[in-house]
Design a protein around this nucleic acid. Structure first.
Lengths: 218, 218
DNA sequence: ACAAATTTTTAGATTTGCCTAAAAATAATT
DNA sequence: AATTATTTTTAGGCAAATCTAAAAATTTGT
């Protein structure tokens, strides 16, 4: 399996519902910053190898082996991200590019030993779940902060947007995974929020709240 | 710099005297298990980029930037080997294949943090020296065990042959880097040797002795 | 020194992965 | 329903890295 094939499988996995459902050619092209014609080419190759089910003009869907392989690549990506942050002092906004390379290293032993070395982490530094070796991916019960009402609270467990701009903004706000967030007030006019984190109150925009996941307290 | 270009630089580095001296096209082809015509093609490309000095029919030599880049790839290769053995329970005969992949990961920060995480190792699991970040490679004063005489002794510091067959044979003999080796007797007929290691006496062939480096005791 | 052997290079083809431009199919609009 | 707009595919081309077969240069042997 080539690096490029793996990247396509990963893109299709993310665009579909974790590997379930049909994805459009253009959606893949956008995600991968390439042209629709290139996608058509590759999708044919993947189809030959039974990694996707492809129906002309209708779209593409991962097969069971395609889905498994995609999950394994994502597993490696996220494990390496944990390694970079936990062991090599990378910040959470610096890991993506390097993990994009490391995710293609081929060695079963490497992955399993790395998992063990890291003490079997469940999520990556952005709160995304790490698939197990069989490709099973645990669903977390998280909700967008933006969907919550005043007086609700929860634990910051993930981000929707992993761009370094956004992550660095969260650093500036001193907002880290695991922090307890309480919604003090939600402004009806622009959906901005007044929240309490680490004994401090801060104000965040609706856009920001739309990129933060919390696990609600009951 | 592509993966293939890096592999050629590495091969030329190893075939020349650590980057000093001219290497023949066929020698590169043999080393890389490819055809002479492919080597000519690639050598032209590397020459365009000023990574090698190429004179038709005469051979090829690394330039200063070519040599630096080769040394950096070898640095990464050997650091990753240390990581695999020290942190992930790989045996010294299992690391090469994975390190061949990891050596091409591009991230200055990754390399330097890895070096620090491993506490700045000087040699890899086979006793080969790890170049520093400037590409300087430390020469060890080691000699082939085969070149030593009876009653001489030294510390096992490296292997000439890193094939898994040979390394596994050394495992079977319970011979590990750092062990003290004393030559009890050297057989004139076939140059086999009776040696003492770890309070035990064993007999090794001339071929074996030709693949073991020791640092002589004075 | 010159013919034979070896080494190296060139020429032309192949595969992967991408591109542009044009054609075909599907979806949207009036 | 027919036209327009959008999406997708096809056709043809390009660059990297490889190959085989043939030509050119160099080295070796007598």
């Amino acid at each position: 399996m080539t690096r490029s094939e793996e990247n396509y499988l990963k893109a299709i996995f993310h665009l579909s519902n974790n590997g379930v459902g049909v994805v459009a050619t253009n959606a893949i092209a956008d995600q991968m910053d390439t042209k629709a014609s290139s996608v058509t080419d590759m999708v044919k190759r993947l189809s030959e190898k039974d990694l996707v089910k492809y129906i002309k003009y209708k779209g593409v869907e991962l097969t069971a082996p395609g889905k498994l392989h995609a999950a394994k690549v994502i597993r490696k990506h996220r494990l390496w991200e944990v390694f970079l942050v936990e062991k090599l002092h990378f910040n959470w906004d610096e890991v993506h590019e390097v993990a994009e390379q490391l995710e293609h290293i081929k060695s079963e032993k490497l992955v399993e030993e790395l998992d063990s070395f890291l003490e079997y982490p469940k999520v990556d530094p952005h709160g995304d779940p790490i698939p197990d070796k069989h490709g099973n991916i645990q669903k977390l019960d998280k909700v967008l902060l933006a969907s919550c009402k005043a007086e609700e609270s929860g634990v910051f467990v993930g981000v929707e947007n992993s761009s370094s701009e956004f992550l660095q903004y969260l650093d500036k706000l001193k907002l880290s995974l695991g922090d307890i967030i309480e919604i003090i007030e939600k402004e009806a006019f622009d959906n901005s929020m007044q929240i309490r984190v680490n004994q401090e109150q801060i104000n965040i925009s609706a856009l920001t709240a739309n990129n933060i996941y919390i696990k609600k307290n009951k």
